[in-house]
Structures are given as structure tokens and as C-alpha cells.
């Protein structure tokens, strides 16, 4: 059933530096979260992807990178899915 979705997230979470990932649909419903990603952030991530895409409606879906001092959140929307990858960054 959703085995492939789980596998996709596992593959990403196993990459070095990645501490979590989350997948949501365009309305912000959480499809799955791994690692330190919280399912509660699905709505926020979908909303951010939605808003940023409005900046340049003619362009392809943008890749959004939010950064704090020690973490990075990379967001992208593709078709019906919005995904985010959390990475730890060394200062």
C-alpha cells in the first residue's frame, strides 16, 4: 500500500546530515513523517510552498530553504505532494 512512500522517506532519512523528512498533500494533510520531523508541521510546510510559489507563478515549483543556526529545512512541491527535508548544518 504506502510501502513505497515509507521507503522513499527512509531512503532520504538515511542520507548523512538528514535528520528527518515529511510528506504532505497540497492541502497540508500529513502523508508521513520520519526522523525528527513532526506531522504537525505538514500544514505549515504546505502553506509555505503555496505562498512561495506565488512569487513567480510562471516558474517551476521553487525549492525553499529555511535556515536556523543549526538546522535547515528544504521544501519543495511537486504535483500533488509537498515534501520537506530537515538537515543539521554545522556552524
Amino acid at each position: 500500500m504506502e510501502r513505497n512512500l515509507e521507503k522513499t522517506m527512509d531512503n532520504v532519512t538515511n542520507v548523512e546530515g538528514v535528520i528527518g523528512c515529511i510528506l504532505a498533500d497540497r492541502q497540508g494533510l500529513c502523508l508521513g513523517a520520519k526522523g525528527s520531523a513532526s506531522g504537525q508541521s505538514a500544514g505549515l510546510i504546505a502553506a509555505i510552498a503555496d505562498e512561495v510559489a506565488k512569487l513567480e507563478p510562471e516558474s517551476n515549483a521553487p525549492i525553499i530553504a529555511l535556515e536556523s543556526d543549526n538546522r535547515q529545512c528544504i521544501i519543495q512541491r511537486q504535483g500533488p505532494i509537498v515534501g520537506a527535508i530537515y538537515k543539521a548544518i554545522s556552524p
Binding site: V12, L31, Q78
Partner: peptide, 10 residues
């Protein structure tokens, strides 16, 4: 990495 993840997720 993010594009690959999204492709396989879709």
C-alpha cells in the same frame, strides 16, 4: 536530494 525524494514520492 529533494527533487529525487519528490519524484519517488509522487
Amino acid at each position: 536530494m529533494v527533487t529525487d525524494m519528490m519524484n519517488s514520492a509522487v
